[in-house]
Each structure stands twice: as structure tokens, then as C-alpha cells.
């Protein structure tokens, strides 16, 4: 997997087998206590993020990707409760940590960027002040020093005329620039890890490519481990070394990007890949996945993809344990037992 040549800087980093993960999520289970109640909205989610590598957390909207990433920050929304598992970030157990410890981790050990750069930036504060904030919060820098550093960071993320732009308000910048500001703010304290929740989804395609290139560049320079939450398979193929596929709160498949794209081992992943148009293959018939993700509160027992799966049988209603072939994990018991080999249909 470390030799995968899917393109993108992420895969170029060789990984020594004894590298300690910067983030380790084990059997994370989150209950939703609102209406309608959904116990195990996120269930038994496990994955690691290694320094200098990118992990994609992929799935349709509502599959628990964002909730999982917010749990890493200790910023779960109201009425979401962690019911089990562990999250270890740079040696600190996030789920047991005090609010004070969490505050020190956020922005210092892990930086975060989000989907809508416009609404993710404070509209009444110059962007330079927002970037510098983490510097004086965590590093005890003076406001003046933090402001100077903010200009440096704006320059680093490729914003021309940085000194002037630092005094601009978010609405005075384009979407791409706003996301660059978000990135500058996230890496202000040179964190070990970056959490990127759909960072390119709201942007124009050309801008998307620029932002991805910038992230790859920063990753190489800072040795960032990146958790990349997305529903865009193209971004995954280009940017991430490893993929965690989520469906309705379950990790249904986990593998190296190349292995997963070459031979998906879960019917959902296979169907998902079949629904993506292939460049250079004109007039291929795109398959769609019938039905939709069940709403929270109505997750079926056993395999949650079962109602939409072409291969479902009676035993699929039992809790699934799946199995791994090397480090290629699938949750599907039938695939793990060798009864079924999902084919990517194109």
C-alpha cells in the first residue's frame, strides 16, 4: 500500500511499520439522544491516522462522517453522547480528557477546516486576527507577534498581498481565499494533525484542485496526518493513502486507496464506485444505488446496507463482524466468508 501510485503527494510518503499513529479511533460508538432516538448512530468505528498520511472518511451525507470527526475534537453537538470506544489523539484519551486538556489540544495538536469557508469564519473579525488567535491562545504570543505571524501564514497559503489581506473581513475575499484563510488558521500552531471536513465541496472545481495541491504541499512540509472527510471519490483517489468507507454509522470497508479502488470488498463500496463516471470511458452506463440511506432513528438491525443490497440474505440481519484480508477490512460477513465477491460495475 505504501507503494501505491494513485498520484498526489500523500502516497509518496513511505511509512515505516513502527510509526505511531497520531490519531487512533477504536470501536467508537455514539448515541443520538434527540428525536427520533438512534442508539449507535455511529457504531464500532475504528481507524488510525499516521503522521504524514491522509485517511479519507467517505460516505453519503448522514452516514456519520462529520459526527465522527467532531468527536475527535471533543465537539459533539448537543444530544450526541459517546457510548463506547476510545479516541487517542497524540497519546491523549480524548474521551476521558478534561475540557481544559481538550482546549489545549484543539488548534495546537489538531487543526480543523470545514466545508463552508464563508460561514466558518467570523464575519465581524479581520481574517488576520482569526488566524493569529491560536498563536496567542496556545503559544502565549503577544497579539502583535500573532498578527505578524498571521501575515506570514497568509503568505504561506498562497494569498498575495498578505499584509493587506490580513486586515480584510471574510466577505471581502473569494471562496477559495476564504478556505486558504481557514487553512492558515488551522496550521497556525503547526499541529501534528489536520481535520478536513469536506474542505473543497463548496468550491469551484478549479479552486478545489488548488486547495488540494496546497494541502498536499503543507502535508509534505509539516508532516501532517490528515483526516479527510468527504463524499467525493475523485478527491479520495487523488489525495488519500487510506480509505474508511462509512455507511449509516458503520465502517463497512477500510483499505489502502489503490486496493479499494481495484477490488472493493463490500457491496456498498462496489456500488458506490459503480456510480462514479470514469474519465475517458465514453457512454458507460452509470449504475445507481436503489433506495436511500435510512434516516437516523430507523437504522435496520444487522447490516445497515441490507435493504439496498442486491446480495442480501436472511443472515444479513444478524450483527456483522466481517473480516480482514491483510489490512483490507470489510464488515460484510458473506464477503469475509468467501460466499460473495462484489464486482465493481462500470
Amino acid at each position: 500500500m505504501s507503494t501505491s501510485k494513485t498520484a498526489g503527494a500523500a502516497t509518496a510518503t513511505a511509512v515505516a511499520p513502527d510509526v505511531r499513529p497520531i490519531l487512533s479511533v477504536r470501536d467508537l460508538t455514539i448515541d443520538y439522544l434527540g428525536e427520533p432516538r438512534q442508539p449507535a448512530l455511529v457504531q464500532d468505528v475504528s481507524f488510525d491516522v499516521l503522521p504524514g498520511r491522509s485517511v479519507a472518511l467517505i460516505g453519503e451525507s448522514g452516514c456519520g462522517k462529520t459526527i465522527t470527526s467532531l468527536a475527535v475534537l471533543g465537539l459533539l453537538p448537543a444530544r450526541m453522547r459517546v457510548a463506547g470506544g476510545s479516541i487517542v489523539l497524540d497519546g491523549v484519551d480524548v474521551l476521558q480528557a478534561s475540557e481544559r486538556t481538550l482546549r489545549d489540544l484543539r488548534g495546537r495538536t489538531v487543526g480543523a477546516i470545514f466545508q463552508e469557508p464563508m460561514s466558518s469564519l467570523n464575519p465581524t473579525m479581520p481574517v488576520g486576527d482569526q488566524i493569529g488567535e491560536a498563536r496567542w491562545l496556545h503559544l502565549g504570543e503577544s497579539r502583535r507577534a500573532a498578527r505578524a505571524k498571521a501575515v506570514e501564514l497568509l503568505d504561506r497559503v498562497g494569498i498575495p498581498n498578505a499584509a493587506r489581506r490580513a486586515r480584510a473581513y471574510p466577505h471581502e475575499l473569494s471562496g477559495g481565499m476564504q478556505q486558504r484563510v481557514m487553512i492558515a488558521s488551522a496550521i497556525a500552531c503547526e499541529p501534528a494533525m489536520l481535520l478536513a471536513d469536506e474542505p473543497t465541496t463548496a468550491l469551484d472545481v478549479t479552486v478545489q484542485a488548488d486547495i488540494l495541491a496546497l494541502l498536499a504541499d503543507l502535508q509534505r512540509d509539516l508532516g501532517l496526518g490528515i483526516l479527510f472527510v468527504t463524499h467525493d471519490l475523485g478527491v479520495v483517489a487523488e489525495f488519500c493513502a487510506d480509505v474508511v468507507v462509512m455507511y449509516a454509522g458503520h465502517v463497512v470497508e477500510r483499505a489502502g486507496t489503490r486496493a479499494l479502488f481495484a477490488a472493493p470488498r463490500h457491496p456498498y463500496t462496489a456500488a458506490l464506485l459503480g456510480a462514479v463516471p470514469q474519465a475517458g470511458q465514453a457512454r458507460t452506463v452509470l449504475t445507481t444505488i436503489p433506495g436511500r440511506v435510512p434516516p437516523s432513528g430507523a437504522f435496520p438491525a444487522g447490516c445497515r446496507f441490507r435493504p439496498r443490497c442486491a446480495h442480501a440474505v436472511a443472515t444479513c440481519a444478524e450483527p456483522q463482524h466481517g473480516g480482514a484480508d491483510g489490512d483490507h477490512f470489510t464488515l460484510c460477513d458473506r464477503v469475509a466468508a468467501g460466499e460473495l465477491t462484489p464486482r465493481r460495475r462500470t
Partner: peptide, 8 residues
Amino acid sequence: RTARARGA
């Protein structure tokens, strides 16, 4: 949320 994620 961004500000919180920054440690504020």
C-alpha cells in the same frame, strides 16, 4: 465551532 476547534 471554528473558534472552538482553534482552542477558544
